[in-house]
Design a binder for these strands. Structure first.
Length: 418
DNA sequence: CCTCCACAGGAACAGGTGGGAA
DNA sequence: TTCCCACCTGTTCCTGTGGAGG
């Protein structure tokens, strides 16, 4: 047998094994809506109960839904509203469900524009993504919605993001829109990860938005196990999962506030790693590898796409870390940052701006910035690095600006904290 | 109890981009 | 083309503040 032949054999061999792991991988993606939602019966019933007046031609209450990430809020709402749409056909009540994710659609203008554009096939016009005055879009919205008798359910997912950035004007407008409509009725379902977000709301808005509240508690490990098992049945071929795999994925995800999304990602990536290795079964060690890979990949993606000055600020924190100068305060980070800018011949930003960049890095989980008061010695942030310095440097190694910085071994030459 | 540090973080504004409309 | 608008980055100027040390 010649080399070419062996190569071809192993090529097919690998392919065969690869086929053995997954049956329907897409079942493990979070965009997939399963036909059954384990451990969410109570929430489904509550939501159905709140929405059922629609079928009798009455306006349902607005709903406020909250729970941490990966507790099944979005998937449950989508499921229930889908069912409602099916039922509404039977009773011939026209219902439109508009789903908006406020992480993407994150201004009052975009929310309104998206709603108007939802009806573009019916109304025949479209609002541009920028350009119009907001109140014009709003009156166009009323016109379009009110064109006939119907119920419009607007789902605002991650509504906290929208409010934190823009205040509660949108909600104020949307919650009282019914008083200005003749034919149509609008109700709103707000979904939030953050319970404290209610503090940002005006009392009137709050009382009208949270006429009904539905809470999604985190899943515990055994519930996560049920969810994974249900999906694994369709996703994987029989017998390819080692008995320890699902419990481990569930346990790891349960540790992080019972996040089902995380659990599904772990299971999927474990399968992918096993597949790539050409293994016949998914084993515990694949899950461990998957966890590392997920963590590393998301962090790397975030850091790579950071704007230049955020990278420089982060690099300043790395330098401080390597000088054992952490936790540092804002002033110290700013001093190092300015030196880095000078070394690279880049115009530094003001401290005010850098302070905001530090907050952004904190939000991304790359660093940790806690506001502390040191009494006589002022009020500042205590800044720490959340990932090992060498990992950050490795990610920077491919960055055009920072390469030179690493090459000149900035840290040692400058002797910043001798 | 008061002071005063070293900032936090809000407000107003400037300048630029990218898009639609007349 | 020119004008308008939303939105972003960034600056300047500013007021507010928790708590150690006097």
């Amino acid at each position: 047998m010649n080399n070419e032949q062996t190569y071809l054999d192993s090529l097919f061999e690998k392919y065969l094994h690869a086929k053995r792991i997954f049956k329907h991988k897409e079942v493990l993606r979070h965009s997939y809506t399963p036909k059954e939602l384990p451990h969410r019966r109570e929430q489904i019933e509550t939501l159905a109960h709140i929405l059922v007046p629609v079928l009798k031609g009455e306006t349902p209450s607005n709903i406020f839904v909250y729970g941490k990430t990966g507790t099944g809020k979005t998937v449950t709402i989508k499921f229930v509203t889908e069912e409602l749409k099916k039922a509404s056909k039977k009773y011939s009540v026209p219902v439109d469900v508009i789903y908006l994710n406020c992480e993407v659609v994150d201004t009052q203008y975009r929310v309104l524009a998206n709603i108007v554009n939802y009806f573009k096939h019916e109304s025949g016009f479209e609002v541009p993504l920028v350009g119009w005055p907001t109140d014009e879009v709003y009156s166009r919205l009323k016109e379009v919605i009110d064109a006939k008798e119907r119920f419009v359910i607007i789902i605002l997912d991650e509504i906290d993001k929208l409010i934190k950035k823009n205040g509660d004007d949108i909600l104020y407008n949307l919650t009282r829109i019914n008083t200005e409509l003749q034919n149509a009725r609008v109700s709103i379902i707000g979904i939030s990860n953050d319970l404290r977000f209610k503090e940002y709301l005006d009392a009137r808005v709050l009382s009208s938005l949270s006429e009904e509240e539905v809470v999604f508690p985190p899943y515990d490990a055994s519930q996560l196990r049920d969810i994974l098992e249900q999906r694994a049945k369709y996703a994987f071929n029989d017998g390819v999962l080692d008995a320890a795999v699902i419990p481990l994925c569930a346990a790891l995800a349960a540790k992080e506030h019972g996040d089902a999304r995380k659990a599904l990602d772990l299971l999927r990536v474990s399968g992918e790693i096993a597949e790539r290795e050409g293994a016949e079964k998914v084993l515990e060690r694949h899950v461990r590898k998957a966890q590392e890979k997920i963590e590393h990949d998301t962090m790397e993606e975030v850091i790579k796409t950071l704007p230049l000055h955020s990278k420089l600020v982060l690099y300043a924190v790395v330098v401080l870390d390597e000088n054992d100068a952490l936790p540092a305060n804002t002033g110290e980070v700013y001093v190092v940052y300015k030196e880095i800018c000078e070394a690279l011949d880049v115009e530094p930003l003001t401290q005010r701006r850098v302070s905001d960049l530090i907050n952004e890095l904190d939000m991304l989980g790359i660093i940790n910035a806690k506001v502390v008061s040191k009494g006589r010695y002022g009020r500042t942030k205590e800044i720490r690095l959340n990932i090992p310095a060498f990992k950050v440097k490795n990610m920077f190694r491919r960055d055009y600006h920072l390469q030179s910085l690493l090459a000149m071994d900035f840290l040692k030459q400058r002797r910043l904290f001798a």
